[in-house]
Design a protein around this nucleic acid. Structure first.
Lengths: 348, 348
DNA sequence: CTGAAAGCGCTTACAG
DNA sequence: CTGAAAGCGCTTACAG
């Protein structure tokens, strides 16, 4: 900062050419003779020239900055998605502005507005829980391309890449039904994200198709943490009328559920089946291994990056929504129903 | 992009003042009369003006961009640190450029060089494994303030915030010694990061102080993944001469170790004690709970942000290194030595 | 193929 | 307290 910045002008002077010529060399324009290029490049290197994007920006070059707004970086799934996005953008020669709002709408809005000041090329958005559609539409109105990732805000017309959570949950539920389970609980129902809605719908659909009435006492709404999964599972299973299988909104809850079961002497995968969704790397390593839905992670970053590039190239192209189909990974946490003695409710 | 940008000039025209005046209003300069400010602000809002940082930058305002170079975002500990940094920078009115090199030195170097083009105010760096000191010194030579976070590159004169890993590992080892363990293995020794070196040294020091000779066969070097922790633990414990306690380089390995133990019928916390380091949120939820070292996470982001701000304010201030002291969190995975029957090595 | 010049959208002295 | 003007470091027509 204290040392003077080396500018195009300095380079031009040293090389004995005009600044415009140096600029063209930097952009590798075919209009410059090879000999000139070589000469200028030598000087460039010699004086340690560093391109100034802020200045270039002003004259119309793109910023190469992409804003990435994450709902919750601390969740391993979203950390993986972020890492995937970062890698994809890096390969595309983009640089990434990261905002992690930790599910706070005001923080998210604040970040999205800040992005404008930096002339971002586009925004990759994993919306926070209950994001109002206006917040996203505002971006679109500003002509900032937006790709929604993993989650989407209902009613917003933007590109999107995510997983088919509805079908995924349906597959997972069907797996339990096929094992003979008819008493299936759903842990961690969430109404405020698209993922939460879609997964729950898939669960209901599968039950309906099988002609099974679900018990509303087994549909539990609580935050998607391991702690809550643990506690709620214990509470549910200690009740008089407990299910034989638990479909969990995500793996985090499923881990909590498995620990909860074990804490009251129920072996997951034997007496009670547990199925998660996300297939975080941990799920393979548990004992028993967690049956779960394998959904896109790093691949999602790659697809999101590509969608954004396509949109930049052709701003008026039709909206594209890419839905990756999840696969069920069957492990030992799910198994056939075993009739078990009725447990007593705790004395109060 | 298609719609014309609203500029200062437009606002000035609409408000009937000079552009300089609008600029001063934006910066809330005391030189402008309140009445003028009010008028200009009304226009600002009305026309939907958005400040252009690229232009401001050119005239000497700071970019408010801080580069954050992470070694491995997929590791939950570093994801937490990143989230903490992001939050701290947000509060300081900074915006964050994220690079995640996934322990790749070339990617890291590439990112650090890119940062210069964007006139970053400073860099928060968690160096990748085996980062050459030249890469960091280059930044310093460019007069870009650098704060190293969590890890440091030996011999680099920069601000730093991290944990006292040496003392931490010593405390953890001492805990095992106090429980009567004399046969202590060390899982996941890493030589190429400061964290790896410091923790191992702490372990050795504690043993030495207790006058115990460690068995080199129990010092295992392998990547810090759960898979490796699992495999190596099984291998180690099935040997003829197995330790009674395992100190693990981090919690990830410790989880693998606990799963590995259980897979061969050894209950962690009973027959064999397991201690981790990091205290990731998961460790409280395992059964048994993992005894581990609680080290700074989000707090580290906060401190790093503050260090950077101090450096920006006073570039010539002496180097500051802030070392947070870790605390041991004792849970059920560690307990007193229990003599156990000698296991047979597997027939080959 | 190259040079001179205008201009991107701001900030900052410098006059008034 | 306010206005006119120069200039940050680039890119891009426009002449030559």
């Amino acid at each position: 900062m204290s040392t003077k910045r080396v500018t195009l002008k300095d380079v031009a002077q040293a090389a004995g050419v005009a600044t415009g010529t140096v600029s063209m060399v930097l952009n590798n324009s075919p209009l410059v003779a090879e000999a000139t290029k070589a000469k200028v490049r030598a000087v460039l290197k010699e004086v340690g020239y560093v391109y100034d994007r802020a200045a270039g920006n002003l004259r119309g070059i793109t910023s190469r900055i992409v804003g990435v707004s994450m709902c919750n970086l601390v969740n391993p799934y979203f950390a993986d998605v972020t890492a995937g996005i970062q890698e994809a953008l890096e390969e595309l020669g983009r640089v990434l502005f990261l905002g992690n709002c930790a599910e706070s709408i005001p923080r998210q809005l604040n970040f999205l507005q800040t992005l404008r000041q930096y002339r971002v090329e586009g925004v990759l958005l994993t919306p926070a829980i209950a994001t109002p559609k206006e917040h996203v539409e505002q971006l679109l109105a500003w002509k900032v391309p937006v790709v929604q990732v993993t989650r989407y805000v209902a009613g917003v017309e933007s590109d999107y890449v995510g997983n088919d959570n509805r079908v995924g949950a349906q597959i997972a539920t069907k797996h339990l039904l096929d094992l003979g389970h008819e008493r299936i609980g759903y842990l961690g129902r969430a109404r405020l994200t698209s993922t939460g809605q879609d997964r729950y719908e898939g669960f209901r659909t599968a039950l309906q198709e099988a002609g099974i009435r679900s018990n509303d006492d087994w549909i539990l709404e609580f935050p998607a943490t391991r702690e809550d999964g643990f506690r709620e599972t214990v509470r549910l299973m200690q009740g008089r009328d407990a299910p034989t299988a638990l479909l969990c909104f995500n793996d985090t809850i499923a881990f909590g559920a498995m620990l909860g079961l074990r804490s009251i002497g129920i072996e997951p995968g034997q007496e009670v089946s547990v199925v998660g969704m996300d297939n975080v790397s941990e799920s393979a390593l548990w004992q028993p291994g967690l049956t779960t839905l394998s959904i896109g992670r790093d691949s999602i970053g790659r697809v999101a990056g590509k969608l954004l590039m396509d949109r930049l190239e052709e701003p008026e192209r039709p909206i594209e929504r890419i839905i990756l189909r999840p696969d069920l990974v069957v492990r030992a946490s799910s198994g056939p129903v075993i009739p078990r003695p009725r447990r007593m409710a705790r004395a109060s």
